[in-house]
């Protein structure tokens, strides 16, 4: 055993106390520090580069019409350019379906004409991936774009039109994002065919592979494995209709609650760059309370 005298005996305890105090720091300060730390390292990280690996993409081909889908094992080889094009098409289809539904609702509401669906991409900036860190499902990715480029905290991040994560901290020249599979991240989501809305959160699967769980509150739910899950736009981070993933299986938690396992459309950690949305937060369609009150009077 080692027995020390003097101040060296206490230094470990001082550091231990400091470490314990760090856990009590407020979230805002932590996000600011994380953003600035990544921003400070950005020149070095950019030079060394996080490498370019082909993205791992999910496709509905992994979902035969039974519940015994093989999941990720059955997915196509990630390096095939066809897979990327397929993801793009799927994301586009999901968005068009969503727009079609929105237009139909508009048409029903006004009982006449409706505007054409816009195909322009939302305002954003393409940023190279400069850092990756994955520990126990807590993946964090560093991007070479920061507040100087218009990136803000909480902004949505897309890859080929599919929603893959959100900005958790932003520094001047770099920002870090958490993918949708991160256990701490929540995204408002919607099932394309079932039209049910819920909250998507990250969750480690039984095999340790990252998955998402969509919690839906409904008495009845008609969902087939392979059904697309898209953003609902209610969280103010993503525009509605962006592809999030595909339903793998579902189970009824209680009378009104369903838990759906969702395979993310794309593994954000395996991409070479991502598209960060820089526009103002999308309008959340809350009911206009003031107008309703005025009308009530």
């Amino acid at each position: 055993m080692s027995y020390r005298t003097g101040r060296t005996r206490y230094d470990v305890w001082v550091y231990l106390a400091l470490a314990a105090l760090l856990t009590l720091l407020p979230g805002g300060a932590v996000r600011a520090m994380r953003g600035h730390a990544l921003s400070a390292l950005q020149p070095l990280l950019s030079v060394s580069g996080a490498g370019e690996r082909p993205a791992t993409l999910s496709t509905p081909a992994a979902f035969p019409n039974t519940n015994t889908s093989a999941g990720r094992d059955a997915m196509p080889a990630a390096s095939q350019p066809n897979a990327t094009a397929f993801l793009e098409l799927q994301a586009q289809i999901a968005r068009l379906r969503e727009e079609k539904n929105a237009l139909r609702r508009q048409l029903e509401a006004i009982g006449g004409t409706a505007g054409a669906a816009s195909d322009a991409p939302p305002p954003g900036v393409w940023a190279r991936l400069i850092a990756r860190r994955e520990v126990f499902g807590d993946a964090l990715l560093g991007l070479e774009a920061g507040t100087q480029d218009g990136v803000r905290e909480g902004a949505g991040v897309l890859y080929r039109g599919a929603a893959v994560g959100r900005v958790v901290s932003a520094g001047p020249r770099a920002c870090s994002i958490a993918p949708v599979t991160h256990p701490g991240l929540r995204v408002a989501a919607r099932l394309v065919n079932a039209r049910a809305e819920g909250l998507l959160s990250g969750s480690p699967g039984e095999d340790g592979a990252p998955r998402c769980v969509l919690d839906v509150y409904a008495r009845e739910l008609q969902v087939q494995p392979g059904e697309q899950v898209v953003t609902s736009g209610l969280d103010g981070c993503f525009p509605p209709g962006r592809l999030l993933g595909y339903v793998k299986d579902l189970k009824r938690v209680d009378e009104m609650r369903w838990s759906l396992t969702v395979l993310p459309a794309c593994d954000a950690a395996a991409t070479e760059g991502l598209y960060v949305l820089t526009g103002a937060a999308p309008e959340v369609p809350w009911p206009e309370l003031n107008r309703a009150r005025t009308a009530g009077r």
Partner: peptide, 26 residues
Amino acid sequence: LLGAGPFGHWTLSCMITVTVLLSIER
């Protein structure tokens, strides 16, 4: 700082580990 987990957990884990390891430092 560069991770995504709850802040301070890595530092605390490292310092507890150091405390244990230093018990047989010699």
